[in-house]
């Protein structure tokens, strides 16, 4: 091989290792545009993809912070359901036949939203507090929270779906100006907020320090315990926000809702390059990882491929993305 060629090759290699996962997304988009030039690149379809991304995407933002800190949060699916049924129960119209609170009239929408956020924050504070103050692994603490929260959902609803919701709540499943889905706007705002938190606040820097080297973080005077609690509160709040979008969209929250979402969220985060060894990860990665999953679903639907294949491909992408990242981060010998 001549030197020019090999130079080119090493340039490509650099590019791939720097933008690896974004390139996969671009590749998927190009491929779909070629295969379905009519339906895939339309504005309507793109907004649809973004709309489908919002719920998992917002939770992936929280999960990214958790995983950068070398933790994990298995409870986000159940917390979504819990915050969702609480929000829904507080926004049932008087026309509802089965009500969680028999005599409660219709509440203003902000009550439902605040209640959902409070539920998410409380669940996060409990999981995070257990991790920080008892030293149990995040996996265990949030596994417990996942099961407990789901149990509370069933108790709270007596196993019944919560439906007949106010217009205020249904707004979160609608479009503004007829075209832009509200979830896309909320997702966009959350991306910006999370990017600022992670990149430009002391809290964000501490998250990287705690995940990268907890000993260094401690010796540098970072209040590690307090930060860990905050990290899980943030994750809980993202689940609560997602629950509002979820409730607005489906208009009726079933107690079994969002089962297994935590794994999709972890998958999106992982594909986005956040390392489970801690200390590595970005907001942009989380967005790209989420979009890859959504484009995949959308593409398979448009192409009419058996949806079971989707699971197989999704699994391969998760593993492939991590292999790619490991190579990127491997110690230069």
């Amino acid at each position: 091989m001549n030197s020019k060629n090999s130079e080119k090759l090493s340039k490509i290699k650099q590019l791939v290792s720097k933008y690896g996962i974004a390139l996969i997304l671009v590749g998927m988009v190009i491929l779909m545009t070629i295969l379905k030039p009519q339906s895939f690149p339309s504005a309507k379809n793109i907004l649809n993809i973004l709309n489908q991304s919002a719920i998992v995407g917002i939770m992936a933002l929280g999960m990214t912070i958790v995983i950068i800190s070398k933790g994990i949060d298995l409870s986000v699916g159940s917390v979504l359901a819990l915050a969702g049924v609480v929000a829904a129960s507080l926004s049932q119209t008087s026309a509802a036949s089965i009500k969680v609170f028999e005599s409660l009239g219709q509440q203003p929408i902000f009550v439902a939203i605040l209640a959902a956020l409070a539920v998410g924050a409380a669940a996060g504070a409990i999981s995070g507090g257990l991790i920080a103050f008892t030293g149990i692994p995040a996996f265990i603490s949030t596994l417990g929270m996942m099961t407990i929260a789901r149990g509370i959902v069933f108790l709270y609803t007596q196993g019944q779906p919560v439906s007949k919701l106010s217009d205020g709540m249904l707004f979160f499943g609608s479009n503004v100006f007829e075209v832009i889905p509200v979830p896309v706007i909320v997702y966009g705002i959350m991306i910006i907020i999370t990017a600022i938190i992670l990149g430009y606040t002391r809290f964000g820097k501490s998250v990287y320090a705690i995940g990268g080297n907890i000993n260094a973080a401690e010796v540098s005077g970072i209040k590690v315990k307090r930060n860990i609690v905050l990290i899980y509160i943030f994750a809980g709040v993202t689940a609560a926000l997602a629950s509002i979008l979820f409730t607005g969209r489906v208009a009726s929250v079933h107690p079994g809702s969002a089962t297994g979402y935590e794994l999709t969220v972890i998958a999106a985060t992982t594909i986005g390059g956040t390392s489970h060894s801690g200390g590595i990860g970005t907001v942009w990665g989380a967005v790209v990882g989420t979009l890859i999953l959504s484009v995949l679903t959308n593409g398979f639907t448009l192409l009419g491929i058996d949806p079971y294949w989707q699971q197989i491909v999704q699994g391969m992408i998760i593993v492939g993305a991590v292999v790619l990242d490991m190579r990127k981060n491997a110690k230069k010998a």
């Binding site: 600022i196 990149g199 430009y200 606040t201 002391r202 964000g204 820097k205 501490s206 990287y208 320090a209 990268g212 080297n213 000993n215 260094a216 973080a217 010796v219 540098s220 005077g221 970072i222 200390g279 590595i280 981060n329």
Partner: peptide, 29 residues
């Protein structure tokens, strides 16, 4: 410390100022 304890995947500057990063008037780093 006796054992080196760097935050490997962060830049030199963040390793040095971790926990006491300089902030602007908006409270951002």
């Amino acid at each position: 410390q006796q054992e080196l304890s760097p935050i490997e995947y962060r830049p030199i500057m963040e390793n040095i100022w971790v926990g006491r990063e300089p902030r602007n008037r908006f409270g951002l780093v």
